[in-house]
Amino acid sequence: MSVLDWFSKQKESNAGRRAGRLDIPGDLWVKCPSCAAVLYKKDLEENHKVCQNCGHHFRLTFEERLSLTADAGSFREFAAELSAVDFLDFEDTKTYKKRLEENQRKTGRRDAFVCGEAAIHGYPAVLGIMDFSFLGGSMGSVLGEKFVRAAERALEKKLPLVVFTASGGARMQEGLASLMQMAKTAAAVARLQDSALPYIVALTDPTTGGTTASFAMLGDIHLAEKGALIAFAGPRVIEQTIRQKLPKGFQSAEFLEEHGFVDAVLDRQEIKNHLAKILKHFVQPAEQR
């Protein structure tokens, strides 16, 4: 037996193993990144994208989050017409303009934040939802402007403001203007703080960078979805800085609760009820129609 045979044998066994695996059509089944269970996509969606096996929360799109949060048919969007411009002619491996077009096509939305008036178990509120699937939920000028308009609408209509965050941070393609959205949104929260209107933040996976370091950490009440990554610096950046592996669960919703930055860590299905329970302290439910 020559040395070469060892290699051919290994190849064979590899191939054998591959053949033994389930042939999973990509659009019917999903593998849970947490417990590796293979989940039937339809079941997963019926379970609001929570793994039936381990409870891992998959990320939601804007539409999915909205339908889980607002009463059916209650959402009245505003500032929907705003869209981003490539004012720096920013080009990395692609132009910003191209990236925007691709993401708009993919999500059917103009940017990573949607806001409107809504009812949550009958309680009226201004509701803002970030969509991570749009350019990583990055905060650019449109997001900043829409957030401020949502805060202004809350002030004008004397409504609570509820915001779901999901963001990789500031949008680099808008340069320093994206950083300034942190100041802009924080200043708008300051105006809300000066009123007697509650501002509630629901932190979902992932919330990092400039988003966390501005309006996401300024709520009167912070809720977080189970297992969500909530951070200033992302885990990879920290690992590179301190040159060691991070402890398990570091920067998770549970970790933030333990360290005093979150009021409640909730299962996805509990959030709406919990929001309604909070809102009950501040507003009257709309008359039943």
Binding site: M217, A231, F232, I238, I242, H259, F261
Partner: peptide, 20 residues
């Protein structure tokens, strides 16, 4: 600083509070 302790003690909250 992107460090362990900084995250534990709320780097994001501290910056956000200052902005506000």
């Amino acid at each position: 600083y992107p460090g362990l302790g900084a995250e534990e003690r709320g780097q994001a909250e501290a910056i956000a509070r200052n902005l506000q």
